[in-house]
Simulated scan of single mutants.
Amino acid sequence: MKCVLVTGGSRGIGSAICQKLAIDSNYHILINYQSNKAAAEKTLEAVVQNGGTGEIIAFNVADFEEVKSVLTKWQEANPEAIVEAIVNNAGITKDGLFMWMSPEDWSSVVNTSLNGFFNVTNFFIQKMLRNKYGRIVNIVSLSGVKGTAGQTNYSAAKGAVVAATKALAQEVAKRNITVNAVAPGFIRTDMTSDLDEKELIKLVPVNRFGEAEEVADLVSFLVSKKSSYITGEIININGGIYS
């Protein structure tokens, strides 16, 4: 059984990725979530409706011991399973001006995006190296590439993952493992529902917000065998804001 793990797979871009992979790939889809079980189950239903197979798997990506424990138990219960692809999508925002930012708002955002990338990828990387195959796709952000005022914590976390993507790609390329990042701009999801779309559209050359499905199409390509000569890349998907 060959699998793909999507962290933060229950909602928004993560859910769209799971649903797209159910159509485009033959992978058994591991839908990670932390707190919203109902949303994860809904995503699993959509995966099955799209002709795929999957299961939900609960853990907090920011907690190294929990990640290790849950994934070890899962691996022991599924000894034949091989996780060939990881989509590190889990992330949170706690926006605010840096001068008023609490240590908690800084560390929780960094822990989820950056340490989450480490905790999950580190668990599987040796297995991928042994198998001489892997696809790692990190969902970063326009904020991590350009920097966004009011999001110094989020920009720092995603910018760090951008740099880690480029470095890890060079370490594992000889073993047929690619590591790429996708940097969405304004995508219509729960996370952006509080934003002033009318105002922000003025910044976007294509004159609209993106859809989660459009990000999922790109991720699906990067997870596939078709992308085998692309690694260490940060692909912007933002309607031309930052080009």
Rank of each mutant, 00 (worst) to 15 (best):
V162F: 00
D105L: 05
Q19W: 07
M191Y: 02
L5A: 08
Q75C: 12
V145N: 04
K20F: 08
N60K: 07
V219N: 09
Y242V: 07
M128Q: 14
A212H: 05
S102V: 09
V109D: 02
V6Q: 01
K42S: 14
K20P: 09
C18E: 13
A16P: 13
F98S: 12
K158P: 06
E41G: 04
I29E: 03
G159H: 03
A169L: 06
I31N: 05
E104Q: 15
G91V: 07
V172G: 01
V145K: 06
V223S: 10
L97R: 13
M99V: 13
A173V: 02
G14V: 05
F209M: 11
A58K: 15
K158H: 07
S25K: 09
A16R: 02
L142E: 03
N180A: 00
V179C: 03
F221C: 06
L222C: 13
F124P: 13
D217C: 12
M1H: 13
M1K: 11
G210L: 01
E213G: 11
W100M: 14
A212C: 06
Y242R: 03
V120A: 10
M1Q: 11
K42W: 07
F186Q: 03
E41I: 10
V48F: 10
L21F: 09
E66Q: 15
S15A: 12
T121H: 07
M128R: 10
K20W: 11
L44F: 08
I57G: 03
N115L: 12
V204H: 11
N78Q: 11
K73L: 09
S143T: 09
A156N: 04
L222R: 07
K73Y: 04
T53W: 08
A77W: 05
N115K: 11
D95K: 04
I56P: 04
S108L: 13
T112A: 08
I92Y: 13
D190Y: 01
T7E: 00
F123K: 10
Q19H: 05
I234K: 11
A173W: 05
S193W: 00
I235M: 07
G240K: 05
Q19N: 13
K37D: 12
L168A: 02
G144L: 05
N111H: 11
D24G: 09
F221E: 12
T43F: 02
D63N: 08
A16V: 10
S69T: 15
K202A: 10
E214I: 10
I230F: 10
A157S: 06
M1I: 14
K158R: 04
I82H: 15
L203H: 14
L168Q: 00
Y154R: 06
S108K: 14
L142I: 15
A181Q: 00
T53S: 15
I17A: 02
I201P: 05
S243E: 12
S155Q: 04
I17C: 02
K202F: 06
A157P: 01
K132N: 15
L44Q: 03
M191I: 02
I125W: 05
M191V: 02
L71E: 02
V179G: 00
A181I: 00
I136T: 04
E211C: 07
R135N: 12
K226F: 14
D63V: 00
T165I: 01
G239R: 00
G12K: 13
S35M: 10
L203A: 15
F209G: 08
V145C: 07
F118P: 09
P79N: 04
T231I: 00
N153I: 09
A149P: 07
